[in-house]
């Protein structure tokens, strides 16, 4: 077993929000059509607000496409937005509209975010970012992702509950404190 270690570790290829030297890095493997990921999204947002620059958030795609027919298309949309430097805006948009992830919805989101809609549509039509999504998925499997969402805190799989927002955020603070002590 991987013992729940993130493989590969976070790198410059990842979508990251927050400082590189933040004491705690939270990696989420998620699926834009997964209702639990939708709930977790709000909790992660709250964690970002509360921890501020103490937290770096990384998102990797883990579309469970057999269960969620729109999950792969949505992941591609987030990657197509990333190619235009707007990953997180699209990421939020998708989680806020989990029930509307058809191709025309995705295009409408791209337009509302002011993306180059033609380029975006081409990326989706050509499935340009298939490999990226697939690579994320594979890395999740290797890291011991066992469903969505799965979180890693500073590289270790978090097996506790994320649904308890207070406990989840406290655990992040604790990880930040531990990291700060280790580096001190």
């Amino acid at each position: 077993m991987s013992d729940g270690q993130l493989t590969p570790p976070v790198s410059g290829l990842d979508h990251a929000a927050g400082p590189d030297n933040a004491p705690v890095t939270l990696v989420e493997y998620g699926d834009y059509e997964c209702p639990y990921c939708g709930m977790a999204h709000l909790i992660v947002k709250e964690a970002q607000r509360e921890l501020g620059s103490e937290l770096r958030l990384v998102f990797r795609n883990f579309p469970l496409a057999e269960s969620h027919p729109h999950a792969r298309g949505a992941a591609q949309a987030a990657e197509a937005a990333a190619a235009q430097g707007r990953f997180w805006e699209m990421h939020d948009m998708l989680f806020e509209h989990q029930d509307a992830l058809e191709a025309e919805d995705l295009l409408a989101y791209a337009k509302s975010l002011g993306l180059d809609a033609q380029q975006f549509a081409r990326d989706l039509a050509d499935a340009t970012h298939t490999k990226r999504v697939r690579d994320d998925f594979r890395s999740g499997v290797r890291s011991g992702v066992n469903g969505t969402p799965t979180f890693f805190m500073n590289g270790e799989r978090y097996d506790g509950s994320w649904a308890n927002q207070v406990a989840f955020i406290n655990r992040l603070r604790e990880a930040a404190r531990q990291a700060a002590e280790t580096s001190a």
Binding site: M1, S2, V141, R142, N146, G147
Partner: peptide, 16 residues
């Protein structure tokens, strides 16, 4: 591998 009954063991062990 026998996982605790409430823990989804994932697939990494199988793939390895």
């Amino acid at each position: 591998f026998c996982s605790p009954i409430g823990v989804n063991p994932g697939a990494d062990g199988i793939l390895k």
